[in-house]
Design a binder for these strands. Structure first.
Lengths: 123, 123
DNA sequence: CATCTATGTTGACGTTCATCGAATCAAGTG
DNA sequence: CACTTGATTCGATGAACGTCAACATAGATG
């Protein structure tokens, strides 16, 4: 697909977006690059369908769920797959195939890092 | 249109997006409506320019800043104004005019609520 | 091998979004 | 009054996004 020049720097799909990134939003003004990277994570949760899919996975026992368990969000199967991919690219989910089914799992460190961006200790 | 700004809840139309909303994402699957509402807040931070503006305000002494102090993000003045409005509509910022300048301030309760969505106590 | 089921991928389509320039308005200052 | 800061509007443009239908793939099973 070769994304074009919209990203000056790296964008190896799944991995880089997951890097812990930045200090709390309250600590200092973000640089353009930090903002670019962090915005991707927020944007990933900025869609209702993705938010539902994410909370479905996150609230499943063990923090993981089969696609078949969570795909009842009112959109077609390819659309579900598309959104899960986005969440994966943002580093919020990881996936693993086990036999017939594919399981998605929450990446707790990334989610916690996002939380700390917003609610640093004692704020 | 500034009615007495004694307390931090917002204009009629902007109020909905600001309501604290939902349980932690890990607690249970979001309903469509909850997802719709919550996604708006994440989407508001899902843009690099808005993220920079927000962190600029949040990191200013006192959690508030004049537009003139933060508008150096590489986009035109109407665009800055546009993004600040979006952040306001999402409930993340509030604004107040003092003399010549307009000051934007972080709404800590809303930001904290967002943080708790992601990082509930002890997770 | 043939076939079924569960997912991922592709390509297209319409919609929303970010951005701009330029103009204009509103509020406040001196 | 002129000047400044910031918000608002308008039209326009290109990019990004959400969605689906159709196709492709991987594993299980017959």
């Amino acid at each position: 697909m070769s994304t074009t020049k919209s990203l000056p720097l790296l964008e190896p799909e799944t991995a880089e977006a997951a890097t812990p990134c930045c200090p709390p939003l309250t600590e200092r003004t973000f640089t353009a690059e930090e903002a670019e990277r962090t915005a991707k994570m927020f944007k990933a949760l900025g869609d209702p369908v993705r938010l539902r899919l994410f909370s479905a996975v996150a609230s499943h026992p063990g923090g993981e769920a089969c696609v078949c368990d969570i795909s009842d969000v009112g959109v077609s199967q390819p659309t579900v797959s598309h959104h899960l991919k986005k969440l994966k690219e943002a580093g919020l989910l990881s996936s693993e195939r086990r036999g017939t089914w594919v399981y998605y799992r929450v990446e707790p460190s990334v989610v916690t890092a996002m939380g700390n961006l917003l609610a640093p200790a004692g704020n």
